[in-house]
Design a binder for these strands. Structure first.
Length: 207
DNA sequence: GTACGGATAGTCT
DNA sequence: GACTATCCGTACC
């Protein structure tokens, strides 16, 4: 399988909402020491600088610094004190915007995903015949996909461009139909329709 | 299969 | 010290 990474222009050429749409159908890949895992992005949310739900809405702080960096940078933050969320920085440098990845359709490293998810969930590691987390539950939600993919807070501010082990492959085929609607789990800015997902895809976190 | 409550820690004021 | 928003176990149907 040839390594074909999405280039900088993909992340920087369009506004954040367009990027959030264009990311659907792309494949997120992580080459970790434990093995390779990957999944097709089926659900995203855009976070804009003039949007009260965006971490960069108020002030430029140490935590949000990567959001102002080059497009194609990873922005990883802690949520609920116990889960991480994975975002991709968009737009030009100096503009604090990003796209949250909310769900994946697993494509490779399924067994490794099951192990990571089981361990993090406090269950015994998988055995082949053991009761398992089902395929569609593996990456259905921002915290889940971070666990399954082995993304860690150390990857905060890492680049998805050349040189890294975490990157995107381009769409093989464009999604047939994209639904947009309100984002999940936020109060401020909840009326903004900045959530995008592939219609009828069973791997989205919430229809 | 839906519904509810509890766990948790980093960031900023 | 206030604020933040996901996952999971349990209950119940």
């Amino acid at each position: 399988m040839p390594e074909e990474k999405v280039p900088l222009s993909f992340y920087s050429a369009y506004d954040t909402r367009t990027l959030a749409r264009n990311l659907l159908g792309c494949e997120l890949v992580h080459e970790s020491p434990d093995g390779l895992t990957s999944g097709i992005i089926v659900e995203t949310e855009a976070y804009l600088q003039d949007d009260p739900a965006c971490h960069a809405f108020n002030r430029r702080t140490p935590r949000t610094e990567p959001m102002y960096g080059r497009a194609g940078t990873a922005y990883v933050y802690l949520i609920y004190g116990m889960y991480q969320c994975f975002n991709i920085v968009s737009n030009a440098e100096g503009i604090g915007e990003a796209v949250l990845i909310r769900a994946l359709q697993p494509t490779a490293g399924i067994e490794l995903m099951e192990i990571r998810r089981s361990i993090r969930a406090g269950k015994a590691p998988m055995t082949p015949s053991a009761a398992r987390i089902t395929l569609k539950e593996l990456c259905r939600g921002p915290g889940k996909l971070v666990q399954a993919m082995g993304i860690e807070k150390g990857m905060h501010n890492a680049t998805l461009l050349s040189g890294g082990t975490l990157y995107l492959r381009p769409q093989v085929t464009a999604p047939q139909e994209i639904i947009e609607g309100p984002r999940v789990g936020i109060n401020l800015g909840r009326e903004l329709p900045y959530r995008y997902y592939i219609k009828d895809n069973i791997f989205v976190s919430k229809a």
